[in-house]
Design a binder for these strands. Structure first.
Length: 162
DNA sequence: TACTCGATTAACT
DNA sequence: GTTAATCGAGTAG
C-alpha cells in the first residue's frame, strides 16, 4: 500500500528532471499518463515514479514509501534485513524490496499481466489523514524546493521522514 | 572524451 | 553530524 508520494509537476518545476527539457532519460514523462518512470540515483538506488498529466506536460509522482502487505519474507531477502519498518520506508528501499529496476521503465502501471501494477484495494483515506510537506532532497530547486508537494499518511510507520 | 553531481542509504564519528 | 558507496545522464568542449 502506497503511503508516501511526491509530485513533480510540469516543465517549470525546477526539482523535476523535466525542467531542462526532454532528454532520452525523461522522455517518458512527456508522454501519456499511467506509465512507470524508473531511474538510477547516486549509482546505487532506483526510484519509482508514475507518469501523470497529459501528453507534452511532463509530470510524475515519485513513490517514496509503501507499507508491505504481502511477500514480506521475499522483501526481507532482497533488503537483507528483517526489520519490518526498514523494508520499504524510502524510495530506494522499496525498489530494493520489490526488485524494481529499469526493466520496468516505460511499462504500463495499470497492466494486470505485468510484473508490477497498481491495484485499487477499495479503501478511502479520510482527508485529515493525508499530510502535506516539503519535498525531500531538492534543495537545489530554488523557489520550488519549499512547495508542499509531498504527501503522506499521518502516523504511518513506513513514511520515510516525519 | 572528460567532468560533475544527483528525487539515497547505511555506517561511521 | 559526516561520509563513502559508485553509476550514468547531462553538459561542455
Amino acid at each position: 500500500m502506497i503511503v508516501e508520494t511526491e509530485a513533480y509537476v510540469g516543465p517549470q518545476d525546477l526539482a523535476s528532471h523535466a525542467s531542462r527539457g526532454k532528454t532520452p532519460r525523461n522522455e517518458i514523462m512527456f508522454g501519456d499518463a499511467g506509465y512507470w518512470y524508473v531511474y538510477l540515483i547516486y549509482g546505487f538506488y532506483n526510484c519509482l515514479n508514475i507518469v501523470t498529466e497529459n501528453k507534452d506536460y511532463p509530470s510524475a509522482v515519485l513513490i517514496r514509501a509503501v507499507e508491505p502487505v504481502e511477500g514480506i519474507s521475499l522483501m526481507e531477502i532482497n533488503r537483507k534485513t528483517t526489520k519490518l519498518e526498514n523494508l520499504t520506508s524510502g524510495p530506494g528501499k522499496l525498489c530494493q524490496a520489490f526488485g524494481i529496476d529499469k526493466k520496468l521503465n516505460c511499462l504500463s502501471c495499470l497492466d494486470k499481466d505485468s510484473t508490477l501494477f497498481i491495484a485499487d484495494i477499495g479503501i478511502t483515506i479520510p482527508k485529515n489523514k493525508i499530510k502535506k510537506a516539503k519535498r525531500v532532497g531538492v534543495d537545489y530547486a530554488g523557489k520550488w524546493k519549499d512547495k508542499l508537494l509531498r504527501f503522506y499518511l499521518k502516523d504511518n510507520p513506513f513514511v520515510s521522514k516525519k
